[in-house]
Amino acid sequence: MRKAIEVKDFSFRYRNASSSTLKRISFAVDKGSFFCIIGANGAGKSTLCNALVGLIPHYFVGRSKGLVQIEGVDVAKTTIAELSKTIGLVFQNPFNQLSYTAGTVAEELAFGLGNYGVPREVMHEKVLQVARLMHVEELLDKNPLDLSGGQVQRVAFGSAFIMEPSILVLDECTAQLDPLGSEEIFNIVKDLNSSGVTVVMVDHDMERVAQYADQVMVMRKGKVAALGTPREVFTNPRTPDWGIDVPDYVKLGRGLQSAGFDLDELPIDESHAVQTVRGLL
């Protein structure tokens, strides 16, 4: 299988920073897979996202070493705009995603398409389509700056997703949404993933990570602390050292084990946990 993303020995130090934010990071993401990055705040997750879409080294000044390849293209040797055809980023702060030049949500969604020279009729069609999917069709004529945080998050997600990148990087893209809203977004992400889009997601919700991820990478202090399937990562006894939480289902399994119950396997998601507990009753 060809790799969507390959990072080899990549290090980065921001200018004026006393130490490197990323230290010799190496990993690869298979095409079409769902890849999650977790870790404490300040572990370098957002910096890594910036490196994947080319903001590092093209925008942020600093010293970088090593290689980041997106579908075989060396990020350092192309431009952010050129990369945007392949890889899209949904920023942690949705307000950073806005162009601040669009007077309406419709224009905001269309901004990226305009840069690609998409004909107007196609643009209108796609804007409507994405607006429906993101439940923002009533907001199309509103000023993006007048929306609530949750609404902006939907628009921001739509504006990245409308460009149909083959790789989508989501940096805590649902922090401002309520549980139903984020579930709606994750259903869309899951559908995109099933249709072949590679997803790289940074998230603090461990239950969600366990539910969706094919592979989980744990970052700690700028390094890769662990990389494996959700089961391998979350049932590893070293998780407390990595500064991460584990899904409550794993905690429940451990609690049952220490209360003397015999479990074949620690549950990592809801259905598995329900099944395990039913077995005990």
């Binding site: 309520d178 549980p179 409550d248 905690k251 329900v274």
Partner: peptide
């Protein structure tokens, strides 16, 4: 109200 209980509470309800 579209509020889902936390994981452990959900498992308890399910069983």
């Amino acid at each position: 109200a579209y509020v889902a209980p936390p994981p452990i509470t959900r498992v308890a309800q399910e069983v």
